[in-house]
Design a protein around this nucleic acid. Structure first.
Lengths: 146, 146
DNA sequence: GACGACGTTGACGTTAACGTAAAGTGGTTG
DNA sequence: CAACCACTTTACGTTAACGTCAACGTCGTC
């Protein structure tokens, strides 16, 4: 494959094209408030596989979305290994065999249970917070009386 | 081998199944499916402060609740340090000064935001899971046709 | 009175998820 | 061309949250 000469790609562009196609690692990092190191680490762990132009990584929309999902998974307490497990199976889906697919469905059901428990945990935790806040406000009010 | 006992009788009192007041570290560990090591570690980190009978730790209802809350916090992705921060301020509340109380309210507001983002993350993640599952089922069905 | 179950305190080991520093590459810009 | 950038690899460092042993004390029981 030959590389067509690219147009003014990276830096600040005069007209902000509605559909930016590629991102540098630094851009992605700023977007999601992580460090480039983190993004490289995720690649090393098999969560990303950006294109390369020479040595340099080039991220497309697909990669950006995957990073977004990864970070969301992390916020929900999934390990990178767990996330990779889903990601890999998702990639392998088109030609996946039945056993693999059923395994994927199992994993998904598992995650789903996890989500349900988290919802419950959040509800309970919110009530705890309400409670603590109420008490704190009461104490504060008594202090204000003097 | 011994005859299977009705219950693994705890050291202190007979089994008062209705209103048990105290627990050994092993009992608590089994209850919450963690190891004693974990519980001791939480104590070391200032999250628990069980009574001592001689050398042995004795946990009361209060300790059990605190452990439960701690583990819930962990499932929600809070660090032990964060949890301790709230716990300590909660303990210090009765004679807390206004500045401390306001700080506590800040922390609580922060946690609350965290919960909100998590709720949103969970909703989004559930939709992702729906999507992946749907695709997987489609592929599976096509496989089943032969 | 040995045995096993449970408890204790160190102390060192391990894993995940990055941080950080060193040393080099490649492009643009004054 | 030199001086910056932004990017790269390699490799060692760090932190949180425990795990894993060793070495010991204390029961109840066989």
């Amino acid at each position: 494959m030959s590389i067509p000469k690219a147009e003014a790609t990276p830096p600040v562009n005069g007209s902000l094209p509605r559909q930016r196609r590629t991102y540098s690692i630094g851009e992605l990092a700023r977007m999601f408030e992580v460090t480039p190191r983190t993004i490289r680490f995720y690649e090393q762990e098999g969560l990303l596989a950006p294109e390369r132009r020479g040595q340099t990584r080039i991220y497309h929309e697909k990669d950006r979305v995957r990073l977004k999902l990864t970070l969301r998974g992390k916020r929900l307490g999934f390990s990178l290994a767990e996330i990779r497990e889903v990601v890999e199976m998702y990639d392998a889906m088109p030609d996946g065999n039945a056993r693999q697919l059923k395994r994927l469905l199992e994993i998904l059901a598992d995650k789903r249970n996890n989500m349900e428990r988290q919802l419950e945990d959040i509800r309970l935790m919110q009530r705890e917070l309400d409670d603590v806040e109420l008490r704190a406000r009461e104490v504060l009010e008594r202090l204000d009386q003097y």
